[in-house]
Amino acid sequence: MLIQQLINGIALGSIYALIALGYTMVYGIIKLINFAHGDVYMVGAFVAFFLISLFHLSFFPALLIAMVACAVLGVLIERIAYKPLRNENRLTVLITAIGVSFLLEYGMMYFVKPDPRAFPASFQLHNFHLGGIVISSKDILILLISLALMLILTYVVNRTKTGKAMRAVSFDSDAAKLMGIDVDKTISATFAIGSALASAAGVLVGMYYGQIDPLMGIMPGLKAFIAAVIGGIGIIPGAAVGGLILGVTEAFVSGAGYSMLRDAVAFTILIIILIIKPTGIMGKNVREKV
């Protein structure tokens, strides 16, 4: 029973980690909590849904196109909604992020109607039995895709010119600008990468649960934010760790017969982390001159 719930929790935590990575990347560079991020996850699920059901694409091409579409959407959101407010106070930008979130939710609801849609099964799935443990090919697929995307992100951040620019801007944007780094382009690249990862998570959730709807991004978006805070918001490995911790915890709570309390447990963990270690598990205290 424990091993079974651990497997379920790792699959769920991998999805939280993908969404949390977008939160933590954006916060690490411009100190913005992008509350529209969970709705980009929803848009990605719907893009893949229409590509598979209307254009009869297979799962992986639909996944890649959905990631590209949401990367473009992320850049547009940053350029239209956030860039003009970059020098304003954080509360103004936060309210704008909430407004963008509502726009995406109810805009999608207007065009596709609020009814849940059955996500099409694009390939045959199997269950593997190992003793008393059941491992679904869905779990394996989610884990492999999530792991591959995290490894690619790690390579991009640590080994590419764009990744080095992102790290420089997150450390000191003014100094990075003086060194010839295009800060605006770097911020747009950050939104593009984070939105693509959120889109991948949305497609995986649609495949896993077999159902999507225009409001599906609200709770996963909040929980991914919790995961980012648990790991240390602004720290990329911390987002992955926080997502896995949250997913495994929820799986054990549900497995114990308290599925109605799993959301409450997630927010309780957030409160405990903020009281005990506000910087998160992998965060460090930083002195700031006043």
Rank of each mutant, 00 (worst) to 15 (best):
M166D: 03
D172M: 02
G280E: 04
L149M: 10
L91C: 05
A121S: 14
I281F: 09
D184R: 01
I98W: 11
P61V: 03
A176L: 06
M179L: 14
K164I: 14
M25K: 00
A66G: 10
M108N: 06
R86M: 12
A201Y: 04
H126K: 14
A239D: 01
S199V: 03
L18K: 07
I245D: 08
S122A: 15
Y155A: 13
I29D: 02
V75L: 08
G243R: 11
N87Y: 11
G232T: 07
V229M: 10
G99Y: 09
G206L: 08
I3L: 15
I77K: 09
G194Q: 11
V43Y: 01
Y106I: 03
A121L: 15
R86K: 15
I30N: 03
F119T: 05
S170H: 08
I269P: 11
I218R: 14
L57Y: 04
N34K: 08
L21E: 02
L54A: 13
A228D: 08
V68L: 15
R159A: 12
G22K: 01
R117W: 03
P278L: 10
V248R: 11
L54Q: 14
A256N: 12
P61S: 04
S254H: 05
M207W: 05
M282W: 07
S137N: 00
L6S: 09
I3C: 01
N285L: 09
D174F: 11
V43T: 05
L2V: 06
M67G: 09
L270I: 05
V253W: 09
F49S: 00
D174M: 10
G280I: 13
M179D: 02
S136W: 05
A240I: 03
G283H: 07
G194S: 06
G99P: 09
S188N: 15
G132L: 01
G255A: 08
H37I: 12
F171R: 14
L104C: 09
T186L: 03
G217D: 07
T190Q: 02
E250F: 02
I33R: 06
G131T: 04
P214M: 09
I10E: 09
I281E: 04
V47N: 04
A227P: 08
R86W: 09
Y16E: 12
P120Q: 07
G238A: 04
V253M: 10
K113R: 15
V286D: 14
F123K: 10
D263Q: 14
I19D: 05
A17I: 02
